[in-house]
Design a protein around this nucleic acid. Structure first.
Length: 516
RNA sequence: CGGGGAGUAGCUCAGAUGGUUAGAGUACUGGUCUGGGGGACCAGGGGUCCGCGGUUCGAGUCCGCGCUCCCCGACCA
């Protein structure tokens, strides 16, 4: 097969359309099908194959790659830098709300795990076990933590004695392992990184307030930092955490209309504290079991970030968590040393005046500007400054916004000082685009027929009055392919209606969607 | 965990019925010309053909077992 001439290749590519997230390119697909070059320079089109687009993007943007063990991944420096940004934002919130970090061991004795019946039942299928140390078979096998409630309870049983010891508000940043059957980079890996907060309280109400605090931290992280609008709510009985009294979560819409559970917060009641024998003397000197919560947010959120904002050119990073916020690309000619010196001088000046802005000047030699543009677009860098002789002739630089491809000229003087404001605007645009998507693809339904209809064309977020009966949940989830009740919406709890399945009185609104 | 597909250079792949020293494009290295959207030319380097075992004079190719990835279903942050 003949390779197409370079010209036709170039014309087949679509240079960052104005709204690339929703702009399919039939021209491109046709070209790819008939004369697909050996190594396509572009990643798979999002509209063509969302799953492949996702994996391509993660790998080509060098966020992560597969490791030799099934379901495990290596988080590469760019991906880890992103995680560190997320960690810092969330960790600050945790500290602000009174939580302290500590660390528990990776290995948990089997007997610890067995104490809470529901919990064991829930996690049994996905626990990985250590059975041997060196050459010796262990007397008791050790679980690689799938979560840490059990070990934490066992330890705090020794440390909590009085109401004066409460509340306990702790958190740990750790890795956990769940032997997953179907894995996907970031979204569902066997080992993942997360934060797990664990708290103990005197009263049920105090614990309930803490569950809300946790969820609010997640909402703030998602919306204010990651620019992902979320819908907070309560999980149905069938979807709640193993061993919890109830579970709250935030649900985000990915740009293909699927839902991603992006953070969960559990009220554990006294289920674990009773099972693990944690008790305290209350203010009347009566022995009580404390009320407990736990909540976690994982590297999965990175998958959410990618799928919520990314487009055909790759990632779109919200500036507040972008490892690199601004990239400066110098454009010079080799036969114009004076021009090159001026460009270099301008780049230095911008870098020097950038202050806290995370800015990088791409001085790599022998790489043409166009390739650098593509390189940083793939990585989602929010703003690009192009600095060439043409710009400097009029005392300007060219600014290009990743999210929508908009380009304009800014005076070189003081441009560095204006970057924070420009980045804020980018943050707002990314968020409002995501909010627009959520709005456009949310529908209200009142019956199973309407539900089916709503999903006939494409995945949506369907809201419906729901009575919470398991039989009705079953009816809802089997009404169309792969439906799930994501949450009972927080913001609409108490809304009077008639259940979409049985028609009986209801006071909750279910968010129904297909989910990752 | 069931059904299907795949694994050959960093990547995408070609290697017919087993037969010399395993190829291409791209990426990589050096050089020259270049430089405002993934450049051109020249010269190079790079392979335990996923692993283990077997059949054979001879295995990338055939057989068995295992591992990993992808797709479709049942379970999950």
């Amino acid at each position: 097969m003949q390779l197409p001439p370079a010209q036709s290749l170039r014309s087949a590519r679509t240079p960052a359309p104005p709204d690339p997230a929703f702009a399919p390119s039939p021209v491109h697909s046709a070209a790819m099908a008939d004369e697909r070059p050996a190594m396509p320079k572009a990643i798979t089109r999002k509209s063509e194959d969302f799953d492949r687009w996702y994996t391509d993007t993660v790998r080509r943007a060098e966020l992560a790659d597969y490791a030799p063990v099934r379901g495990c991944m290596v988080i590469r420096p760019y991906g880890y830098a992103l995680w560190e940004r997320i960690q810092r934002a969330l960790d600050d919130m945790l500290k602000r709300t009174g939580h302290e970090n500590m660390y528990f061991p990776l290995l948990i004795p089997e007997s610890y795990l067995l104490k809470e019946a529901e919990h064991v039942k829930g996690f049994a299928p996905e626990v990985a076990w250590v059975t041997q140390g060196g050459q010796k078979e262990l007397e008791e096998r050790l679980a690689i933590r799938p979560t840490s409630e059990t070990i934490i309870c066992s330890m705090f049983a020794d440390w909590i004695h009085s109401y004066r010891d409460l509340p306990v508000l702790i958190n740990q940043w750790a890795n956990v392992m769940r032997w997953e059957k179907r894995t996907r980079l970031f979204l569902r890996t066997s080992e993942f990184l997360w934060q797990e907060a664990h708290t103990f309280h005197e009263t049920h109400a105090q614990a309930a307030a803490e569950v809300d605090t946790g969820l609010e931290c997640y909402r703030e992280l998602a919306e204010e930092w990651l620019a992902i609008p979320v819908i907070p709510g309560r999980k149905t009985e069938s979807e709640k955490f193993a061993g919890a009294e109830y579970t709250l979560s935030i649900e985000a819409m990915m740009s293909d209309g699927w839902a991603l559970q992006s953070g969960t917060s559990h009220h554990l009641g006294q289920n674990f504290t009773r099972a693990y024998g944690i008790s305290f003397s209350d203010r009347e000197n009566v022995l009580q079991h404390p009320f407990q919560t736990s909540w976690g947010l994982s590297t999965r959120i990175i998958g959410g970030l990618i799928m919520a904002h990314g487009d055909d050119a790759g990632l779109v990073m919200p500036p507040r968590v972008a490892p690199i916020q601004v990239v400066v690309v110098p454009v010079t000619r080799s036969n114009d040393p004076e021009g090159a010196a001026a460009v270099d001088e301008a780049c230095r000046r911008i870098a020097a005046e950038a202050g806290d802005v995370r800015l990088r000047v791409d001085r790599r030699e022998g790489i043409r500007p166009g390739e650098k543009y593509a390189h940083w677009e793939l990585r989602g860098v929010p703003l690009r400054l192009t600095v060439g002789a043409r710009d400097l002739a009029t005392g300007q630089v060219t600014v290009t916004r990743r999210v929508d491809g908009e380009s304009w000229a800014e005076p070189l003087d003081g441009v560095a000082a204006r970057l924070p404001a420009l980045l804020d605007e980018v943050q707002a645009r990314i968020r409002s685009r995501a909010e627009g998507l959520l709005r456009d693809r949310s529908v209200e339904v009142r019956s199973l027929d309407e539900l089916r209809e709503a999903f006939a064309e494409r995945p949506v977020f369907a809201n419906a009055p729901f009575c919470e009966r398991p039989a009705c949940e079953e009816a809802v989830t089997s009404a169309a392919h792969a439906l799930t009740i994501r949450v009972l919406r927080r913001d609409r709890s108490g809304e009077v209606g008639r259940c979409l399945a049985c028609g009986e009185a209801s006071s909750e609104v279910a968010l129904i969607a297909r989910a990752y």
